[in-house]
């Protein structure tokens, strides 16, 4: 019957083992059998990796210190917090507005400074337009700026320059460099090099070549990145404020510290609203670029 033939000569249980399959497949048997090659070719290595991964997950679950009574207590406490938060209190809206405006200032200053610094760093970190040594330096700066989460950077700056918005600005400058310089450097590496060649052929000096042949090509991306970064910095400024770097995050942390859950909820609502608004605005602007 036909099903057996679809399966092929070697896999059907009713085909005599050995002789028939082996002899025909060498020369004339139709090549009708195919299996996707395994991700890890060596079967021993494959089972070691998969088995090891499964064992590790089981072991972690087994040793996870979950204290069920405390989980139950926590749910209860969370209920109390949410209960205390309703209705949200806008009584001290003066404080709220001050905090929010400070966050906005932090975000704008950090975007301005961060983008300004990002541009030369991005040029340094573009493999196609600078000597190898400069390229490594540029990449190193970006890697350092990217390797720490803003909260960690904020803790360091709060220790260094004290509580307040200055620490927030410095933190977000580092954060902006990590993102903007990296993306911009990648864009520079994708430019049409013919335009650079044309300037070189005219004997243009280095900076003039960059200004005429590279900057016009990366300008649209640069503008888009700046707007995105402003949006992103506004969000991050709320987070770094919690560790003392100023802005509405600090206001929020204080409200929690004083068990003013209703005020905290009001702040949270304002933050969410502001982020939604900024995302809509920046999305609209970037769409039109």
């Amino acid at each position: 019957m036909s099903p057996a033939r679809i399966d092929g000569p070697t896999s059907g249980p009713d085909v005599p083992a050995g002789a028939a399959g082996g002899a025909t497949s060498g020369a004339t048997a139709p090549r009708d059998h195919w299996r996707k090659p395994s991700f890890i070719a060596n079967p021993v290595a494959r089972w070691l990796v998969y088995g090891g991964a499964i064992l590790y997950v089981v072991w972690t679950l087994g040793t996870l210190p979950i204290d069920w009574p405390r989980v139950a207590e926590g749910v209860e406490r969370a209920g109390r917090i949410f209960g205390g938060a309703f209705p949200p209190s806008f009584e001290r809206s003066g404080l709220l507005i001050d905090g929010f405006l400070e966050s906005l200032k932090i975000a704008i200053l950090a975007t301005f400074g961060g983008v300004l610094l990002s541009i030369p760093i991005a040029f340094m970190a573009a493999r196609n337009i600078v000597p190898r040594a400069v390229f490594y330096l540029g990449r190193a700066i970006i890697i350092v700026a990217r390797s720490f989460h803003p909260v960690i950077v904020a803790i360091i700056f709060v220790k260094a320059v004290g509580f307040g918005p200055l620490a927030g600005v410095l933190t977000l400058i580092v954060y902006s460099i990590g993102f903007v310089a990296k993306m911009l450097a990648e864009r520079i590496e994708e430019i049409d090099f013919g335009q650079v060649e044309a300037m070189r052929a005219a004997g243009a000096p280095y900076l003039s070549t960059l200004i005429y042949a590279v900057v016009p090509q990366i300008m649209p991306r640069q503008v888009g990145l700046t707007i995105y970064q402003l949006d992103s910095n506004l969000r991050a400024s709320a987070v770094v404020g919690i560790v003392g770097a100023g802005g509405i995050g600090s206001t929020l942390a204080n409200a929690f510290g004083r068990y003013d859950y209703d005020f905290a909820l009001a702040i949270t609502m304002v933050i969410v609203g502001a982020i939604l608004l900024s995302e809509a605005v920046s999305g609209q602007i970037r769409k039109r670029l």
Binding site: D192, G194, Q195, E197, A198, M199, R200, A201, A202, G203, A204, P205, S208, T209, Y212, A213, P216, Q217, M219
Partner: peptide, 30 residues
């Protein structure tokens, strides 16, 4: 020395996003 050697390219190699005048003046960058 390059200033004294003009070059015209197959793919033109104009800077698309700049005006014609800026492109023309880019020959004077040297």
């Amino acid at each position: 020395a390059r200033r004294k050697i003009g070059m015209v390219f197959q793919g033109f190699n104009l800077v698309d996003r700049l005006t014609v005048m800026e492109n023309v003046q880019s020959g004077r960058l040297g």
